[in-house]
């Protein structure tokens, strides 16, 4: 902004000078505070997951291995409801990665995209945009699982043969 000219600044600015000037006006990221918030919110979500897992094990007779799937589904349901009520986005503002990294963040990205694009119709809006954010997670996860799965299978074949 030319109007913000202050004494001692020569125009035109070199790249380094520009960076120096611009960094003064960029909002500072408080890494320590963000990290702390991510830690306790993310930890709390995992703690909640552990409680749900134990409920499934103790009251519904799931084995420790099988309890994982209903736990994830329950967390997703909670996350979708909170997203619909507009609560999860507030949590996300506060916690950053603390609410994005758990599986609830994955569900939030799907639900919020679906709700947001509803005005464009169910097929093009909801259906077409649901995976706008979550799609990259599924694509890269699937491709990586295929590459490493195929690699392991071939290695196993060579080992056995």
């Amino acid at each position: 902004m030319a109007t913000k000219t202050k004494k001692g600044i020569q125009f035109p600015l070199s790249k380094a000078e520009y960076k120096e000037q611009a960094s003064k006006y960029r909002p500072k990221r408080n890494v320590l505070q963000n990290t702390f918030r991510a830690f306790w919110v993310g930890g709390t979500i995992c703690l909640l997951g552990q409680i749900i897992t134990n409920i499934y094990i103790n009251f519904f007779g799931f084995s420790e291995q099988d309890a994982g799937n209903p736990t994830v589904a329950t967390l997703i349901l909670i996350s979708v409801i909170l997203t619909g009520l507009g609560v999860y986005d507030n949590i996300g503002q506060y916690a950053g990665a603390g609410s994005a990294v758990p599986v609830t963040g994955f569900a939030n990205s799907i639900a919020s995209a679906a709700i947001e694009h509803r005005s464009e119709g169910y097929v093009l809006g909801v259906g077409g945009n649901m995976f706008k954010l979550a799609g990259s997670v599924i694509v890269f996860g699937t491709v990586a699982a295929f590459v490493f799965g195929a690699l392991r299978t071939i290695l196993n074949m060579l080992w056995a043969g």
Binding site: T44, L47, Q50, V101
Partner: peptide, 23 residues
Amino acid sequence: MEYVIAFVVGGLICVVGQLLLDV
């Protein structure tokens, strides 16, 4: 005890994510 471990480990993974975002 398993609750404490779940909290701390889950929190630390989120910290890794936050550091990737910030740093």
